[in-house]
Design a protein around this nucleic acid. Structure first.
Lengths: 281, 281
DNA sequence: AATAATGTGGTAATATAACTACCAAATATG
DNA sequence: CATATTTGGTAGTTATATTACCACATTATT
């Protein structure tokens, strides 16, 4: 909303621009103002404010106020500002969390649900699953292995190119190979994907849309592009990948049905003895 | 807001309860109604609605509407519902993302900024850093290694108990050992923490507040308790840990100052040749 | 340069919505 | 059973928003 106002600001005429500026200056208080009060503080007449509101696809001033109020909430939750050199611990902590949340929210809105369903179907039928990733995505692959191993499936994860190449070459129909790469521009992985394709294995890419890797994977779960924070090291992109894998694991659990929960419980219980009991309060 | 209304519902008198029910039935449309329209559809008079609004600490009906609208936004973003057996791909995808976001948001509000600052200070001074984790937290530890290695520091990560025990025993003052465990109830890790403590190393725990592990770590970054989804496998808890590590890495980057960016750039460029160039559109 | 035409902004009237004061009915309570 | 007290509504008042209309300014055109 505020963004819309900012964009349209320059196309407005003098008086309406005054209104826009007044709102942008302090959007949250405008929320509690009457049309007369806003008109006065912007130095214009009431109808001008009304006209302004209408030009922002609202029914009138009260309607506009409600839309504004709404946008302020979601706005304040998700306004990502990039970290700056002199930020205090509090500031950068908040910024990192906020932009992480914003990215996940963006991902949520963009996920191709159809693709999720397709991937889950492939995974359900898989005789064997391999997760490939390099660098930061290597730990994502390992994490996936941990999760999917609980499904009683042969699952492997590799984070070095040679092993990946060998496994890809040796794969056959019924095997599923999931290749994780944020940028999708790592040459080796693209080659490995092509290699695996030719053996009849199902190749699934978790990567940036339209990337070279995405283009050679028959099935792609696309990860939205991340703005700010990943400049110096992969941070947020990873979390999206992990969350997507969580979604896949959940989908798989559901497909397996009720009885399968017992199996998961068993695994969980097997860890009991390594732990301290939960204390009663 | 809706929660408040639900709570107060039983204390209201007949007519006001009608109003409450009408609002709860369809909160989002109420947002666009006038006081008269709402009164009519609830089958009461306008002043009743007004009285109702006042009893919810608002100045009047319009004010109430704005508050309601606001609460609907933040509400709809963060209402986590647990995954159910018959959920469609769309449903469980959304649920996983939503509860992940909600958890991160909760974490954001609960992080002990002071602890973050303290940990960063320790990391800055560290001669050597070791990340320990088992199972799912093992991949978190590896991920941390990837990230912190870029700081030109000797960083190691171990996900097996024996190595961890040996490293802990061999550590000395100036070494920092970060132990990652969601539950904080793994016996081995608690023992390892104690062992490392006795050698003079700085032991930092990333774990649940008040857990056995937290109690033996001089410095603790606490991860808030996760409700729903982690029943069968660690999913969301992990993401909080990772985000906290991102925050630490960011803090460290800032402490290192401007000149350090060049170093990070160099690392990034070293990966260039393994990649396909970014295509022009 | 003068005039028409369009755009811009305001005044005043009108309609609408919200609120207040007051009253009536219903339900308690002694 | 009578009297309080709570509850809900009517009608009037005030505030608020909207519309219709007009005036001024700016610009284009002859």
């Amino acid at each position: 909303m505020l963004k819309k106002i900012r964009e349209k600001r320059d196309q407005l005429n003098k008086s309406e621009r005054k209104v826009a500026d007044t709102i942008l200056l302090n959007p949250s208080v405008v929320t509690q103002l009457s049309i007369a009060a806003l008109a006065k503080s912007a130095g214009v007449s009431e109808p001008t404010v009304n006209r302004f509101c209408r030009s922002f696809l609202s029914k009138g001033f009260p309607d506009f106020k409600i839309q504004l109020a709404k946008s302020l909430v979601s706005g304040s939750l998700f306004v990502t500002r990039s970290v700056e050199q002199n930020d205090s611990a509090e500031q950068y902590t908040d910024k990192i969390f906020t932009s992480t949340i914003a990215t996940l929210d963006a991902a949520r809105k963009q996920v191709d649900v159809q693709a999720i369903a397709t991937v889950v179907d492939h995974l359900v039928q898989a005789k064997q699953i391999a997760f490939f990733g390099l660098g930061a995505s290597g730990s994502v692959a390992r994490d996936a292995q941990h999760k999917f191993f609980r499904f009683n499936l042969p699952v492997v994860a590799y984070d070095d190119v040679l092993m990946q190449r060998m496994v890809a070459a040796a794969s056959h129909t019924g095997d599923v190979i999931v290749i994780i790469s944020y940028t999708g521009r790592t040459k080796d992985l693209v080659e490995i994907a092509q290699l695996a394709n030719s053996t009849g294995a199902t190749v699934i890419g978790i990567t940036l849309e339209n990337s070279p890797l995405a283009k050679v994977c028959p099935v792609v779960l696309s990860v939205p592009h991340v703005e700010n924070t990943d400049i110096y090291m992969p941070m947020i992109s990873r979390l999206t990948q992990l969350t997507l894998l969580d979604v896949l694991a959940t989908g798989l659990t559901l497909k397996r049905g009720e009885g399968f929960h017992q199996h998961l419980d068993k695994i969980k219980q097997s860890l009991q003895s390594t732990r301290y009991a939960i204390e009663e309060k």
